[in-house]
């Protein structure tokens, strides 16, 4: 069985750790965020038992939306087995007693750090992204008072100046991850540090996509089927990464590949970053 039954819940704690008032506060912020796709809604982030910077925003969003009948998947760098994914999944198993799974197709809520699953998401699924820096203009302007005005005025010229400079100096746009997008033709948004390979998956996804930045105290959202366009120039269109190699385990040629160093003489292997996608292909008979 791929769905893990809940373990012993933490006695004396609220369901999913947060008290009901806090969850209500977060849900109100989420509703505002869904009503204004891509707009950063301030929220009163609480201290969690995991450190700020380690996913507390995502955890608070998940804690606010998850219910007893949900099935939770947690990934970090595309894998269910990386240390932080394990830690967060355990946290919810203990505080919410929900069933957990590795399989994207079986999850109702997926919390992620830095990747979008290769398997296409379905209507009814919720993706929760962990966000370190929510503000796409932060590199240009350190002050929050100023960046809020820039969003209010759709004053995004500076962002395009950066892209222009990239092309002028390097011949191409040099942003590899956390690539800025225009949401619903109005708000400039950071999709969190997913590689640009994953940006196209955000566009008009049937799933509800929620973004939580705990330390920076911001929530934003993409309701299902929202247009999301990666910034580019008409004559320098957005493009994604490609590999010459295929996955050394399942042979996939269409997924994001991790580069594994196998020896100290430059030996390299490439394997799917999305471990569930890879194991699913293997189970279906695909091989390298």
């Amino acid at each position: 069985m791929t769905v893990t039954p809940p373990s012993e819940t933490l006695a004396g704690y609220s369901f999913a750790y947060l008290d009901e008032q806090t969850k209500r506060m977060i849900r109100r912020a989420l509703l505002k965020a869904v009503a204004i796709p891509g707009y950063q809604v301030p929220f009163a982030s609480r201290e969690m038992p995991l450190p700020y910077g380690w996913g507390t925003g995502g955890i608070q969003v998940t804690a606010a939306v998850i219910g007893r009948d949900d099935v939770l998947k947690v990934i970090d760098q595309g894998s269910d087995d990386t240390t932080n994914a394990v830690s967060i999944r355990k946290f919810f198993a203990r505080t919410a007693g929900v069933r957990t799974t590795d399989r994207t197709t079986e999850a109702t809520v997926i919390q992620t750090r830095h990747r979008v699953p290769e398997t296409k998401l379905q209507a009814g699924q919720i993706m929760v992204y962990q966000v370190p820096i929510p503000e796409p203009l932060r590199w240009l302007e350190a002050r929050e008072t100023e960046t809020r005005k820039m969003h209010a005025l759709a004053d995004y010229g500076g962002m395009y100046v950066k892209l222009y400079e990239d092309i002028a100096h390097a011949g191409r746009i040099t942003t590899a991850y956390d690539y800025p997008v225009m949401v619903n033709h109005r708000y400039l948004m950071r999709p969190s540090p997913i590689p640009r390979f994953d940006n196209p998956k955000l566009d008009r996804s049937p799933a509800l996509q929620l973004f939580g930045a705990g330390r920076e105290k911001r929530i934003y959202a993409l309701p299902p089927y929202t247009p999301v366009k990666s910034l580019d120039f008409a004559d320098h269109p957005f493009s994604i990464e490609r590999w010459d190699e295929r996955c050394a385990i399942c042979g996939a040629g269409d997924s994001f590949l991790d580069e594994i160093v196998t020896d100290d003489r430059g030996g390299r292997r490439f394997v799917c970053s999305d471990t569930d996608y890879c194991s699913g292909r293997v189970a279906a008979g695909h091989r390298a």
């Binding site: 004053d155 995004y156 010229g157 100046v161 222009y164 092309i167 002028a168 120039f233 008409a234 004559d235």
Partner: peptide
């Protein structure tokens, strides 16, 4: 760069062809 300085107003106004 100088070019970006001049181009900024155009980009702010919606110019999207490098």
């Amino acid at each position: 760069s100088a070019g970006a300085n001049i181009g900024e107003r155009l980009m702010a106004a919606g110019a999207r062809h490098y």
